[in-house]
Amino acid sequence: MPEAAALELDEVEVRYGSVSAVRNLSLRVGKAEIVGLIGPNGAGKSTTLHAVMGLLPAHRGEIRLHGQPLRRRSAESIARAGIALVPEGRRIFGDFTVEENLRLGLAARRKGYMGDPLAPAFELFPVLREFRRRPAGALSGGQQQQLAIGRALVSRPDILLLDEPSLGLAPLAVDGIFKAFTEIREVGTTILLVEQRAQRTVALASRTHVLVGGELRMTLGPADAEDTEKIIAAYLAS
């Protein structure tokens, strides 16, 4: 019997009222793997992450963490079970200092870690250590995104969910965070990445699923990254 996937969605359906935003979605994310989720606006990508995080109930189907179903657990308890979401728009606390924002991430950390609890964030993004006393609202957009990712990492999650982390960032800052994703995977963290930058995502992830109209349309591998036509066709396949 194969080892249970780190995160597994099994025929999941999510509804807003009577409209289903995600239908019959099944996917597996293995340990220390990056899986991408791309698709046009309104395809149900963020909805999927919200369902995993317990912010939205799954109308049908099951979501499992290490084989354990997450049904009816609250966002706060899912966070403490080892899933961290970096939400769209970053959602940092602008009036708090950088360090306070990072310390909030510790709320979901499980027991048994030694040393500086903020080290995972500082090692990956040294600028956060430098600016630790500044109000988070005073950071640049790229630094705020680093802070949001750092805040998720200090909880030492097994699985990191990223919701359009490159949105609104300058090209250099985008390079920075994509490089960080590789480093995060290398320490054994699993990543489910929702992105609009399709080509970069396909190149980075071991598999990238294309979601159109709430349904899984196609799965691309790193080899498809150069095949722009195939990616565009996947988007338009409706």
Binding site: M53, L85, R91, F93, A107
Partner: peptide, 21 residues
């Protein structure tokens, strides 16, 4: 810590819960 969590909850309860508060 409880003070930090309280301030965060008062500022943005949804995000605070998302972080495990």
């Amino acid at each position: 810590t409880i003070g930090l969590h309280t301030r965060a909850a008062a500022s943005d309860f949804r995000t605070a819960r998302l972080l495990g508060v």
